[in-house]
Each structure stands twice: as C-alpha cells, then as structure tokens.
Simulated assay, not measured.
Amino acid sequence: MDKRIVVVTGAFGSLGRAVVGRALEQGALVAQVDVSEARLGEQHADEARTLVLGGVDLADAEAARAAFARVDSHFGGLDALLNIAGGFAWQTVANGDLATWDRMFALNLRTAVSASMAALPFLEKSASGAIVNVGALGAVKAGVGMGAYAASKAGIAKLTESLAEEFKGKVTVNAVLPSIIDTPANRADMPGADFGKWVRPEDLAEAILFLASKKSRAITGALLPVTGGV
C-alpha cells in the first residue's frame, strides 16, 4: 500500500478506523470520508498523509462528486476506494415498516453506488485502480429479522460482480463478506455472545487492504468470506 492513494468511506466508525490506521501503517495516503462531522483531532489528521472530510452524505451524488474532487485536488489522484459506510437494523417483515428497508438500501447500497460512480473517473487513471466493498455473510443466508439488511448487502454482492465485469482490465472490484464484526455496538446488542468467535476489525482491515493492494491485481469480482470463528 506504500504511497497508494485511498478513500475510506465510513471512516469514523469502528471498522473504518481500523482500516485507516492499518492503511497508514502500510504507507498509504488516506482520505477519510464520513457522514458524521469530523471531531477536533480526528484520527491521523496529518495533512501530509491524510485528508479528513466529515459531514459528507455519500447518498447524495453531488456531495459524493465534490468529495472525490477534493481528494483528487489534495493528493493528485486516486488508487483505491474502500466502501465501508453502512448500517444495520434488525426488524421482522411482519412487524416492520418500509422506512427501514429504504434506510438500509440508502446506507448500505446507495452510498456504495454513489461513491463508486464518483470515484471511477479517477480510478481509471490509476495504473492499478481498485474498489473494495463490504458485503455480509448474512446476505448469503439471511435469518429472522435480517431481511432489509441482508437484501441491501446482497445488492452489494451484485454491484461488485457487475462492476468487475464492466471495468475488467481497468479497475478491480471485490468485496469482503464478514460474519459478525467485534465492535462495541455489536457487543452491546449481543452481550451473551462469544466475542472470541467474531471477526476483529483489524483482521477484516487486513483482508480489505489486500484486495486494495497491487498484490491482488489478478483478482476481480470476488466475494471473500471473512468469518472468524462463526
């Protein structure tokens, strides 16, 4: 990842922070993009190696284009887009509402499509452009209450496969499919679970960065399960 210019969406969340930190350790130049406003002293706010862009609603196409234009202006290009922005909601269909479905598709799929559209003109100019999406193992076999979330993440899988074909030979497009990520929010929601079986954000970050690196240039259209002990 040395000197590779990378955009991390959802950069202020648990997984985003792990990816940003590991990418910087590997020598990347990183733009951190998040819908939340950046806090004073946001992680690794070193202008020589990072660009912090808070308050960016990637579901808004114009906001996404403006953000990637700033990345290009700041770093002089783009080599990899890591689509980590997203969210989760548990709700049964019988007792649920359509607003949850709209929210899951906006957070998980629309943001990835919008960011990819904004990034592709810059990625095509890179000698080794890459997109890495975050899907979900739960989209392969969804359980009770997982309908809206799993459907939106299934969309990520098909977006990944379609984009990989569309940009074959130009930009690699792959996705990771984690099981349960070991985050404070997940621990709070499932206090009785065996956290040791879950996927550590740092381990998932390693898989994401491998797919974003030049070492994975022969891989495109892959949906990589990252399941830990689940």
Rank of each mutant, 00 (worst) to 15 (best):
R4T: 02
R4Y: 03
R4E: 02
V7S: 01
V7D: 00
V8M: 03
S14H: 08
L15D: 03
R17E: 14
A23I: 01
A23G: 11
A23Y: 05
L24V: 02
L24R: 08
Q26W: 00
A28Y: 02
L29D: 01
A31H: 04
A31C: 04
D34I: 01
V35M: 06
V35C: 14
S36K: 15
Q43K: 09
D46Q: 11
E47N: 02
G54I: 01
V56S: 10
D57C: 05
A59F: 03
A61N: 11
A63R: 11
A64G: 04
A69M: 12
A69G: 08
V71L: 06
S73W: 08
G76M: 08
G76Y: 12
L78A: 10
A80K: 02
L82N: 03
N83C: 07
A85H: 09
A85M: 05
W90L: 15
Q91L: 15
T92E: 13
V93K: 08
A94E: 09
N95P: 01
D97P: 04
L98N: 05
L98I: 15
T100Y: 07
W101T: 14
D102N: 13
F105V: 15
A106L: 13
L109E: 13
R110L: 13
T111K: 08
T111M: 13
A112Y: 00
A118L: 10
A119Y: 00
P121T: 10
P121F: 09
P121D: 14
P121A: 13
F122H: 13
L123N: 02
E124W: 08
K125E: 10
G129E: 12
G129Y: 06
G129K: 06
I131Y: 00
I131S: 01
I131H: 00
G135N: 06
G138H: 11
G138A: 09
A142W: 12
A142F: 04
V144Q: 05
V144P: 12
G147R: 08
A151C: 13
S152H: 09
S152Y: 05
K153H: 12
I156L: 07
K158A: 10
K158N: 12
E161Y: 06
G169P: 03
G169V: 04
K170W: 04
V173T: 05
A175V: 01
V176T: 08
L177C: 06
L177Q: 10
P178W: 05
P178T: 15
P178M: 06
I180L: 15
I180T: 15
A185F: 10
N186W: 10
G192L: 05
G196S: 11
W198A: 09
V199D: 03
R200H: 14
P201I: 04
E202F: 07
E202I: 02
A205F: 00
I208M: 14
A212F: 04
K215F: 01
A218C: 02
I219Q: 08
T220Y: 02
L223Q: 00
L224T: 00
L224S: 00
G228F: 06
V230M: 14
